[in-house]
Design a protein around this nucleic acid. Sequence first.
DNA 1: CGTATCATAGAACAAAAGTTCAAAGCCCAT
DNA 2: ATGGGCTTTGAACTTTTGTTCTATGATACG
Lengths: 217, 217
Amino acid sequence: MDKTAIEQLSEPQQKILSFINQYMEQNDIPPTIREIQHGAGISSTSMVSYHLKALERAQLLNRRERRSRGLIVNEPRRAHSRDIVAIPIVGVITCGAEPVPTPDPDTLAESENVIHLARSLVGNADGLYALEAKGDSMIDALINDGDIVIMQRNADVKNGDLAAVFLLDRNESTLKRVYKEGRRLKLKPENPTLKPFYVEARHAQIQGRVVCVIRRT
Amino acid sequence: MDKTAIEQLSEPQQKILSFINQYMEQNDIPPTIREIQHGAGISSTSMVSYHLKALERAQLLNRRERRSRGLIVNEPRRAHSRDIVAIPIVGVITCGAEPVPTPDPDTLAESENVIHLARSLVGNADGLYALEAKGDSMIDALINDGDIVIMQRNADVKNGDLAAVFLLDRNESTLKRVYKEGRRLKLKPENPTLKPFYVEARHAQIQGRVVCVIRRT
DNA sequence: CGTATCATAGAACAAAAGTTCAAAGCCCAT
DNA sequence: ATGGGCTTTGAACTTTTGTTCTATGATACG
């Protein structure tokens, strides 16, 4: 019979493990040996130590030797808080007669609205901010009213990137894929049934790259 | 002059604060007083204690008295790992002549591809799975090739919810907002320039609710 | 100048927390 | 039964860690 590691655990070991998890849920920090002792109903600290060593062998946890609260729980599925990035929602984007807002540090620091995303989705979080789409004017960019658009400020926009572009001659901003073609800029709508068009590069101002679009329904 | 709390911090206090953050990034647990002492270049433990008290008064952190590593950093922005949910990507969605796939537990367990999202975005994670959109057939639902569609299985779909619907009479699936109107179903495209249409409820099969759409660009 | 308030240094202390060990109990296959 | 492996016990021990205290500087202010 092929037993998995979890099945081989003795009862006190399971108790210890679940106590550790429960404790960390509540306190964010690992318990001490003596807290485990009482919490899991173990008779002595040496018994806790003994069981912890077994759990260590079973790869279920690691320990930093001689450090207080030195437990490290091995949960491969557990994502770490550093894998989440909080992105401030700094304004709305309307694809209309005004530039897309860019955050100034003040509003950024005190902004209450944030959206949490996994770093795997957005990569390096530097210069990220979020805008809420307002109105139906961007359905050609496949962006709906209420969508959250994650932007990266100061990003270098490469050919084919989706970007917010402000058109000086028309005095409006738009979300398009941009391609540099000499001194012209090709702007290609996301909607493939629409034709791309061209503007003079000096009449266009790239305001940020669109990293990601989130639609909550 | 109205100074915010952060501006009043003395230099060693800022050093301490940033060391704590850095340390917790690396180790997941708060540092001890002496670790702060060395890490932030403070001359004595009593000085650390002194500054910690000041930071406590400034509401920048809390402490559990007499507990080792008893620091609690007051960072409302910090998200916890339990706030992340891993959603398996179980297949593709093509809005064509086949039903939207629903996950069977086997493939679900072993699926390698997952997408991490903050729980704040998707709520309770039960029954969530993700599909990757293929092709341009769904631009009317404002969904692009490559978009990730987060679905909830077994969800009760309310009027106005976006859902995957399989149309028995046409033998195709589609993403629309659904409204029950008697024994008919009103299906409303996301694209407001398109008209809603109606099907007999018994000819339609609601396969899941669309919780969220993610577009990586 | 005196003094009040804040900042620093250094050290000692007390409590918490991790480690170790010898002896004893338990189980089971030989 | 008996020896060897686990498990348990109880306690002591060491190290780490939080706390406190006094003495000393620094600075501002009436």
